[in-house]
Amino acid sequence: MDIQVDTKDGITLFHLKGDLDLYSSPQIRNEFSKHSDSGAPKIAVDFSQVEYIDSSGLATLIELLQKLKKLNGRLCLYNINDTVRSVFELAKLDGIFRIVETESAALDEIQKT
């Protein structure tokens, strides 16, 4: 999986490209860890180029969410296509994560809370 990281307004944006599965999850988990170990991390994850997610990918996101909650951080997911979103819905996780349509909406969502 290709992962690009940049920062806007103090928020770390992860742009993921590829499938989020058992094979790629350790790489993503490692990349998340680099940016969520201290302070009150604010993270937005761009799913616009993610075509597939399985339970390993969902578990990686749950771990990140739980870590950020402990650190009083923020997490928002955006640009999720219908197929990937339906996996979140099937797993009953669409209400657990903050999911918005666009990058600007994600930045607003994180800043206002």
């Binding site: 399985d54 339970s55 390993s56 969902l58 578990a59 749950i62 797993a91």
Partner: peptide, 10 residues
């Protein structure tokens, strides 16, 4: 809501 157990559920 925790990691693990999701695969069989799905």
């Amino acid at each position: 809501v925790r990691p693990g157990g999701l695969g069989v559920f799905l």
